[in-house]
Amino acid sequence: MRRLFPVTDETAARASGEAQKAPDAGSVGADREWSLDELAAAYAYPEPAPAPGATSAGPQPWLRANMVSTLDGAAQHDGRSQPISNATDMRIFGTLRALADVVMVGAETVRQEGYRPARARAEFAALREAAGQGPAPAIAVVTAGLDLDFSLPLFTAPEVPTLILTGAAAAPDRIAAAEKAGAHVLIAGDGVGVDPARAVRALADLGHTRLLTEGGPRLLGQLVAAGVLDELCLTVAPMLTAGAAQRIAGGPSVAVPHRFVLVSLLEEEGFLFSRYRRV
């Protein structure tokens, strides 16, 4: 893998043909396999900022999304993202999870992708301990109807209890079933659905400020429309699928497009790994 942006002195020299010898192993511009420590540094969360105009609300949460898309805009193939991913994309996927306090995911994605609880990884144990984090991120399922199989390992065998974000009008028997399975239910909406801003705040109130969402497209669209997404980590796969697959974000459109700025761009075997932040 090599860094395309931001441009370093070594990257510029290679591009202009001025480099007279192979770069050393520590050069980020070199086409080589990056270590997990380097990936963690490249995708580090910004330092938490204090809540504006308040001293008791705690630090501001930072919500990033991690998605993959083909050249023609498909976020899935045959209903799953795995066929358009690759090994390096999965290493970044694991790194982003290891840096997060919580992974937000929509109920439909839980059902389609066969979500399992995040696992503790020895490679990131020291990093998480230094950041005051638990052994693994919690999975937070965003669901209106709680139409979930609570016998799955996501609920019965997580290292950190799974969270469920739902609305106040959710069926009491489904909430009871979730809690019986060991999940922690958070109310983040006045009706049946979930208010994205309230969901983010509810997680932050539990001390979870490094937030990650892996979609799916419907949930990401809701987060975008609500204006709570701070960062997008997007893998562009060098593939064309055609068909009617969803884009990375669906649902309601925004009145004015939200502007993001490119922070980082990595490349390997035609796959582009981009990182954008909200302006």
Rank of each mutant, 00 (worst) to 15 (best):
I248C: 00
L234I: 14
E33P: 09
V192E: 15
L63E: 06
L99Q: 00
A177H: 08
Q76E: 14
L163K: 04
A176V: 07
T156A: 06
Y43T: 00
Q82S: 12
D89K: 05
T109I: 02
G167S: 07
V228D: 00
E10H: 14
L152Y: 01
L39T: 10
L4W: 08
N66I: 05
Q246D: 14
L36V: 11
A136S: 10
D9M: 12
G26V: 03
T70H: 12
L220G: 00
A242I: 00
V228K: 01
A244H: 15
Q82A: 14
H184I: 12
A177R: 09
L211Y: 03
V160T: 07
A144C: 02
L146T: 04
S81A: 14
P137S: 01
R210G: 01
T109K: 00
S151T: 13
P23A: 01
F273Q: 04
A131G: 12
I92Y: 05
D173W: 10
A130H: 05
E269L: 11
L39G: 02
S274F: 05
A168Y: 07
S264V: 00
E269A: 13
R3G: 08
T70I: 07
G26P: 00
I175C: 06
G53C: 09
T11M: 11
P217H: 15
V263R: 15
N66C: 11
P46G: 06
R218T: 15
H208R: 14
E38G: 03
P48T: 06
Q112A: 14
V110I: 04
V160W: 02
L212T: 06
A51W: 15
V192N: 15
V192K: 13
L212K: 02
P50R: 08
L71C: 12
D89W: 08
